[in-house]
């Protein structure tokens, strides 16, 4: 891939991710927030492809865009969320303080990024990031965490069923 095309794709994906991020935070209606989240997730999937991680990009589309955002939309439809005008916060000056502290936080991260000299980018083979490459590590070195993750999934399913049962006094 030529350098110019990669820069163009990165810029487009970054613009999409940032626009989506603003949409998630600033949208008045939760539905628009959910669709903005979808834009962020798609843009990040493109970035994963640029970073030689096609398997992670596939997972991103299937799990996040396919399952999680649909679940969000489902709940929004289910509760047909009281949208629109949020009441002002009970805490005085919370909004201003939130923006100032967040800006300081971002400035701190950028300061670190500017001072730290980054290591050279290593050369990788063509199979880097493929399903076989990641799956090989998952089923050999990280097989125990992998099995534990399945148990966490089971616990999550049971928890959702228990919480979702009809409320009994």
């Amino acid at each position: 891939m030529s350098a110019l095309i990669e820069i163009i794709i990165f810029s487009a994906a970054a613009a999409g991710a940032l626009a989506g991020g603003v949409g998630v935070v600033a949208s008045a209606q939760p539905v628009r927030s959910a669709l903005s989240l979808l834009l962020v997730l798609g843009s990040l999937a493109v970035m994963y492809l640029l970073l030689a991680a096609p398997f992670v990009a596939t997972l991103q589309v299937i799990i996040y865009a396919g399952a999680i955002v649909v679940l969000f939309l489902f709940v929004i439809m289910l509760l047909h969320a009281r949208s629109g005008e949020e009441r002002p916060s009970k805490l005085r000056g919370q909004r201003v303080a939130a923006f100032v502290l967040s800006a300081a936080f971002y400035a701190a991260i950028l300061a670190v990024l500017r001072t730290v000299r980054s290591a050279p980018v290593s050369t990788i083979g063509s199979e880097f990031g493929s399903a076989q490459f990641v799956g090989g590590a998952l089923f050999t070195t990280y097989v125990l965490p992998f099995e534990l993750a399945s148990m966490v999934l089971i616990v999550g399913i049971i928890a959702a069923v228990v919480i979702g049962r009809p409320f009994v006094r």
Binding site: G21, V22, V25, I76, R95, F99, S102, A103, I109
Partner: peptide, 18 residues
């Protein structure tokens, strides 16, 4: 920058879903 946006959303918004 994306992380900071998420922080702002958690701090500023009142809707639990958002």
């Amino acid at each position: 920058l994306l992380f900071t946006m998420g922080v702002v959303g958690v701090l500023v918004r009142r809707n639990a879903l958002v």
